[in-house]
Design a protein around this nucleic acid. Sequence first.
DNA 1: TAGTGGTCTAGACCACTGA
DNA 2: CAGTGGTCTAGACCACTAC
Lengths: 229, 229
Amino acid sequence: MSVTFKDVKADLLDQIARGALQPGSQMPNETDLAESYGCARATVNRAMRELADEGIIERKRRAGTRVRMAPIRQARFSIPIVREEIEALGARYRYALVAREVLAVPDWLLGRLGLGKGQEVLHLVCMHYADGVPYQHEDRWINPALVPDVAEADFAQTGPNEWLVGAIPFSNAEISFMAVDADRDMAEHLGCREGDALFRTERTTWLQEKAITFVRLTYRRGHRMTTQY
Amino acid sequence: MSVTFKDVKADLLDQIARGALQPGSQMPNETDLAESYGCARATVNRAMRELADEGIIERKRRAGTRVRMAPIRQARFSIPIVREEIEALGARYRYALVAREVLAVPDWLLGRLGLGKGQEVLHLVCMHYADGVPYQHEDRWINPALVPDVAEADFAQTGPNEWLVGAIPFSNAEISFMAVDADRDMAEHLGCREGDALFRTERTTWLQEKAITFVRLTYRRGHRMTTQY
DNA sequence: TAGTGGTCTAGACCACTGA
DNA sequence: CAGTGGTCTAGACCACTAC
């Protein structure tokens, strides 16, 4: 069996972990490594490219490759669809539409959606339950000009998240995480006390430079978001 | 100029975004795509592999490649070193050691660090300030058996995070995000009121299957963690 | 069991950039 | 301006798995 890029990657990682390759030190170039591993340069290249993508090493043309002084530690996590998140817990999912209205965009939202004063937005409030217990409160604003069919969707049965995922094939987004104090309304919806600390994510989604939707997802008390890296 | 993998990737993405390639639909195989783009199969492979890594498409041997029904939306964010985070805000960084003690591992920490009852841990409490204002509270537990030099480090000048990054070349971790109510002690350290909602991350770090450290980072009121995808 | 993606090879040219 | 990584090619073999 020939030497695979995974072999090379694992060996390099091991050398870094054991200290044989010190942080900040220069690594041999691809040609030399390929020779010493007895494989093609492309194989070494693949291994090193992945290490660079993961923030372990730093590569520059002409200057060569170095072990990063402080590895760029990065975590990756998938943004769950709430239905799947709840079903993965083994719980029964239930969705409810709380409010649906079309109104002039409020001032605080003008900038985030890139709209002008007086333009209309669709505002939805929904609740997601796990085994009948409040799990997540969804406060969503949609730019109807960019989502043609949104006027016909009634969102009585299907949540806007799942609907949008189906209607918008691809998009990019900015997402924030924070802690907020529950106000009276939120406390009632989520079944907690006013002032309780709640975990919230805010997300703005764009389709080709134009903001489609802004959503605030507020979780029930005690929610944790976890990932590994 | 020949067709690059970026060209292929961009074109496929564009077809997905425009709806020419519908979610759930089967894509042509690599050989056919290579022919239609007029490039080598390896070029198509690189493009499609990256799209698969990003969760846009789904690849299976023999079954071929499909556009994902619901793209796996995943965000990537780098775990900042608090000093850099504060300096990036243009603020002056200050660090203070609040407490340092060696004690028997508390029960709640036994499992997380994989220790036995009665074993000793190093417990550190630190504060990080931005322009003199409390920014982050750090509550850290270190397994001294796995970090040989930790007994000599006094952490009076340098925070344990930066020290550990230098001492431990590479590691993996599990990280969680949550909201907590400030208790009296936290409120005093962070200059907020008792009961205020605070953003917290908890992280356990392993070096080769053994837990080195568990840390709770609690941020000042109003902190947001943001990323794009 | 046949068709798909996964990977390796050997060679080539090129873009970038630090010495 | 020379050395490094970045990428493409054409061909090959293989592992997996749906059919």
